[in-house]
Design a protein around this nucleic acid. Structure first.
Lengths: 222, 222
DNA sequence: CTGGATCCCTCACGATACTG
DNA sequence: CAGTATCGTGAGGGATCCAG
């Protein structure tokens, strides 16, 4: 019972008491792709102090958002996973992430892109309509971060690392955001060298249709 | 410009840097029904210190989420309103509020219900399909907080205060949540006196169909 | 009276070191 | 690997004060 309560009988206020603390929703984000160990979560959020990570995990467990589970022998290690209630946050997390992506500028030099954030970002930007009657596998490489996205008639499967038979491998950087936001065209990106392709290059046009970020605010934040 | 950054090039991390600070999303909530003055916001969130309110308003304005506007004479007063970008947060706020409402327990003695939180809650719980071919006006009274909700064939209009010709006036308390969650039936609520009706009492059954909170976690949070 | 700014205190957060 | 312990800092909480 946090003494630091909003003092309102309101669903939103209660939600913010459950997952509104710093780092909490980023932990939920990293648990969306699947269960994680303490160290995995730490690696996915290098700037979180371990005591804060520990505290958040306890709070989220107490709130029924995540569940702490001890794996069967011989590993015997501990994983954290979303409960059913926690999984129901997925749509909110995706929507909020997409909203934020609309005003995302250039990354600071110290900013990183993690595997889980990229997986969730692909899910958030996925346009099922645009993926109808489409069957293709992409491999996306942002620095050391590699994920694959396989599309099969309106459905999406994203995962960590390479995939056996990608139709197109996309190697790029933060410019991927401008690409998905339609701020630059695929051909521009290829020409200025910010995107390198291996495979069927024409599939990049499909990619930016299937994964899309809506326009952001006309007056960018100061 | 918070020096306290998450250090990730990620839409969600950026969104949380914009609206993830304490009180920020509650301010957005209170601005959803319409523009508000500093004092209105303060009254809607009695526990927010004025310096924090001031800081949040500046940050949200700098982020392009809200806009500070000086009303024309003779009032000359200042109102804060959501920008278009800020308005695009509405669906997220409603979804997060609905998620939180599912695990909302009994209010603490000091907890309050404000007009704006109630208006937003009604919008969040509204089920357009259940409101098809329905035309009815409700007046909802929770203590001093009075709002009206008028339904017209799948559309909803909510507002502060009474409405001229309500078909049903519902006077109740926090039990309204259990009612919308289907945890108790309208007849039960009437029988035990936790709901008092004026008008066509049969319309209460429609009310709990049109405004609904999905089931919460089976294991309630500790 | 509205629309804040200023002060002081506390506690959560952040960084680091350390333990089972 | 999975956390706990310690300690400094800065944001949040609460009251008061000030300008238009």
């Amino acid at each position: 019972m946090p003494s630091r309560t909003y003092g309102q009988f309101c669903g939103l206020a209660h939600a913010l008491e459950l997952v509104g603390e710093r780092w909490a929703l980023l932990l939920v984000r990293d648990l969306i792709p699947g269960p994680k160990r303490f160290t995995d979560l730490r690696n996915g959020l290098p700037r979180i102090p371990t005591n804060v990570l520990s505290a958040r995990l306890k709070e989220l467990e107490g709130s029924g958002v995540i569940h702490r589970r001890v794996l069967p022998r011989p590993e015997g290690s501990i994983v954290y996973e979303l409960t059913e209630y926690g999984r129901d946050l997925e749509d909110v997390v995706l929507a909020l992430g997409l909203w934020g992506a609309r005003s995302l500028g250039q990354p600071l030099p110290a900013d990183i892109v993690t595997t889980d954030s990229l997986i969730v970002a692909l899910r958030a930007t996925f346009q099922p309509e645009a993926a109808r009657r489409l069957q293709v596998c992409y491999e996306l490489r942002l620095g050391d971060t590699v994920v694959h996205a396989c599309i099969d008639d309106g459905t999406l499967q994203v995962g960590e690392g390479s995939v056996a038979e990608a139709d197109l491998v996309i190697e790029t950087g933060p410019v991927i955001r401008s690409l998905l936001a339609g701020e630059i065209s695929p051909s521009e990106a290829i020409q200025n060298g910010s995107v390198h392709l291996t495979g069927d290059a024409d599939l990049l046009a499909r990619f930016v249709e299937v994964f899309h970020i809506p326009p952001g605010p006309s007056k960018p934040p100061g």
